[in-house]
Nucleic acid binder design. Structure first.
Lengths: 123, 123
DNA sequence: ACCCCGCTTTCACGCTTTTTTCACCGATAG
DNA sequence: CTATCGGTGAAAAAAGCGTGAAAGCGGGGT
């Protein structure tokens, strides 16, 4: 949707854990390996990665990735979050990126390690 | 467009897997064996090889190889990618170079090995 | 001029992948 | 228990892609 940058001189690159996201190219590298994401999956990932660490509502994500308003009952965002989680987990099994905040939305953030014993935000 | 090199002193040579591409000569060697490519096929290969590892859109490829803008509905790029794949596969059966990223474009990169079981950026 | 041949362009059909939509199910809160 | 929320498999619809083949275009030889 929104294209913030078209200059090949300063390509935007997002990093998150061992992920490298190149928005202007539609490319995602997981530890150097290229992932194959669909357009929606990719846009969703990029949208979340741009706001790492913050909780983003479904309405917000829908507006950014799909454009237009999220209609009541539309589960598109959930469905794609699920797809994305699968692909990310397939590529990086011991790393979690997308965290659910029931009633609020999702938060994208590479899980620091594998020992979360009292987080509460998503355990 | 941008010609970085015309000097015969420093001939550009591109490498990709067991491919050796000599743009100024119009020659491609696969494990030493010369391939017979048409002009379009060759230019397309060179264009992709120059940007190995990145996803290149059809529009971009068309501009580079054919010149001018890709008209809506024009499948030229797809057709030549297909031709190219055939010839490359004939020469190097157990190696894949051109990967499709649906909705984005193509990525040229010698398939590392055949033991990546995750999602498979291509199969 | 005419024919042959290889390269390029265009067309169309069918398969694959993606996107959308629906439904069921477990979990959570009141 | 009932209502709500979120995860996800799967069906349906749409979009994207691979490719054989026909058509268009020169160039060379006879």
């Amino acid at each position: 949707m929104a294209v913030f940058q078209e200059s090949p001189e300063v390509p935007e690159i997002l990093y998150a854990g061992e992920l490298e996201i190149r928005p202007h190219e539609g490319l995602v590298l997981a530890t150097g390996q290229a992932l194959t994401l669909s357009v929606r999956e990719f846009e969703l990932l990029a949208a979340m990665a741009r706001r790492q660490g913050t909780i983003i509502t479904r309405e917000d994500l829908y507006r950014t990735v799909w454009g237009g308003e999220l209609r009541h009952g539309d589960r598109s965002v959930d469905v794609y979050v699920s797809k994305l989680r699968n692909k990310l987990e397939a590529a990086l099994p011991d790393r979690r990126f997308i965290h659910t905040h029931p009633g609020f939305g999702y938060r994208f953030q590479p899980q620091p390690s594998r020992n979360v014993h009292m987080d509460g935000a998503d355990g």
